[in-house]
Simulated assay, not measured.
Amino acid sequence: MADDPLPFAAAPSHLLEAAVYCADLDAAERFYNGILGLERIVRDKNRNVFFRVGTGVLLVFNPSETVKPPGNPDRPVPPHGALGDGHVCLAVPGPALDDWRARLETAGVEIEADFRWPNGARSIYVRDPDGNSVELAEQKLWQQPI
């Protein structure tokens, strides 16, 4: 905020991680790793599975587990969670979107929407196994006003 009186050293440089919540981590792993091809970094039993996305990380949490207080004193992450469907958008080169659409359809993933924004960027929307909205979009989506 421009009117914020609190000084800070620098604005955050990029999004380090984002989270979605999926009750069935096996199904989530088949979708994010098997279909989308994201590299699995780590899985903690039925609590979470994390995937590399470029320089960032997609955290997939089991909502019934993350609401519990932390059991590991070395990782005192406060309980958290979300209700309802979440959303994540993954950047894909524009020329590859047709191949992605074909891959998703071949895997039996329903295409919920496929369109161009007013700035010309294309987005394809699907749902993960838990109902979260997953968007594959051209990087230029946020390089110009939509």
Rank of each mutant, 00 (worst) to 15 (best):
E105S: 07
V126Y: 12
N72Q: 14
V109S: 11
Q143F: 00
D3Q: 01
I41P: 05
N33R: 15
G56S: 10
L59H: 10
K68L: 13
G71W: 03
K45Y: 08
W142N: 12
S64L: 14
L36C: 10
P63G: 12
P12F: 01
P73V: 04
P76E: 09
T66A: 13
P79I: 00
T55W: 05
P12R: 06
E29G: 02
R103L: 05
R122G: 03
L36Y: 01
F61V: 06
I35L: 09
D128L: 10
L104W: 10
A27M: 11
E65S: 12
S133V: 09
Y21M: 08
P12N: 09
T66H: 15
E110Q: 15
D3S: 03
L97W: 03
I111V: 13
S64D: 15
D114F: 03
Q144I: 00
L90A: 06
L83W: 02
L141E: 08
V60D: 14
P145D: 10
A2F: 00
H14Y: 06
E138R: 13
N132Y: 04
D3I: 00
Q144P: 01
A107T: 10
L58H: 05
D114I: 02
G37I: 07
D24G: 04
E39S: 07
A102F: 00
E105G: 06
S133H: 14
R75P: 03
M1F: 00
E135Y: 06
P73Y: 10
S64F: 08
F61W: 15
G120F: 09
Y21E: 11
N48Q: 13
A113R: 15
A82C: 04
G86D: 07
C22V: 03
Q139I: 02
M1P: 03
V60Q: 12
E112N: 13
L6T: 00
P73F: 09
F115M: 11
V126A: 12
P95A: 05
R75W: 11
Y32I: 05
G71N: 12
C89P: 01
G56M: 07
R47S: 09
A11V: 00
R101F: 01
N72T: 06
G54T: 04
S123K: 08
C22A: 10
P76N: 08
R47A: 08
V126N: 14
P79Y: 02
I41G: 08
V60H: 12
F61N: 14
R116E: 13
N119F: 05
D3C: 00
H80T: 07
P118V: 04
E135I: 01
P145F: 01
N132R: 08
V49A: 11
G37L: 12
T106G: 07
A137R: 14
P93E: 14
R40M: 11
E65Q: 15
I124N: 15
V77T: 11
D114A: 10
L38R: 10
Q143C: 01
Y125M: 14
F51Y: 15
P7K: 06
L97A: 02
H14I: 00
P129C: 08
P95H: 06
A18V: 05
N46W: 04
L38T: 04
L6I: 00
V53R: 15
F61S: 12
A102E: 09
W100C: 03
A19S: 13
P5T: 01
G120P: 12
F115V: 02
G86A: 06
Y21S: 05
P12S: 05
V134M: 10
D85N: 09
A91G: 03
D4E: 00
P78Y: 02
R122K: 13
T55A: 14
